[in-house]
Amino acid sequence: MIELQDVTHRFGDLTVLKGVTLELSERRIGVIGSNGSGKSTFARLLNGLQIPTSGHVLVDGQNTRHQARAIRRKVGFVFQNPENQIVFPIVEEDLAFGMKNLKLDQSVISQRIDAVLERYDLTAFKQHPAHLLSGGQKQLLAISGVLVMDPKYIVFDEPTTLLDLRNKRRISQAIAELSQSVVMVTHDLDLLGDFDRVIVFHDGRVAADDVPRVAINRYKALLCP
């Protein structure tokens, strides 16, 4: 379980999150809210990419303030733009990157690479330059790069925003099939229909926290009162 205890976050004079307390234990949690409402900041707090100005974020009881390194292994993160997540020129090399950081054995690394490529139908691209993949394939590669590290939770920050309709479907289906716990920030309300819980951020606070239908209606009411 991931817990936020009275979390406040500031950038200079700007207070982005104001005393947020949450327990995240459902398998599929959506996060919505208008531009600048603090969603990305919230997401980055979950795996210690950002440490809160005050309050605590606990992942299975470990505090991101003290154990950020251990927590990053447990909480994977997929960003909006896959281009900026692919670090190595060749698909196979990129998939190996995170696992090498975990100091896994070469045999385990190759085995997991083959398995994940097979899973996403990318086997033919194993030796391919990553920059030649399509947008959807790049995002699948970015997700794969996180999956091979075997995280318990995966946080997504607008994973479908840059994709066309077909790739959007493909990625959302891939996310639906994950066995990990998922927290997903999105502006794409269609993706949230079968989620267990949706949290609405507004002006740095939780404005609604409910089943998707109720939370989405509340969000729409906030936007156009």
């Binding site: 980055r44 795996n47 990419l49 390194r69 990053r72 292994r73 994977g76 993160f77 960003f79 733009n81 900026n84 997540q85 670090v87 990157f97 995170g98 950081n101 975990l102 790069g145 996180v146 590290m149």
Partner: peptide, 12 residues
């Protein structure tokens, strides 16, 4: 962004 992504993938 790249630095963030690398950090998130366990790079130290």
């Amino acid at each position: 962004d790249i630095a963030d992504a690398m950090e998130a993938r366990g790079f130290d």
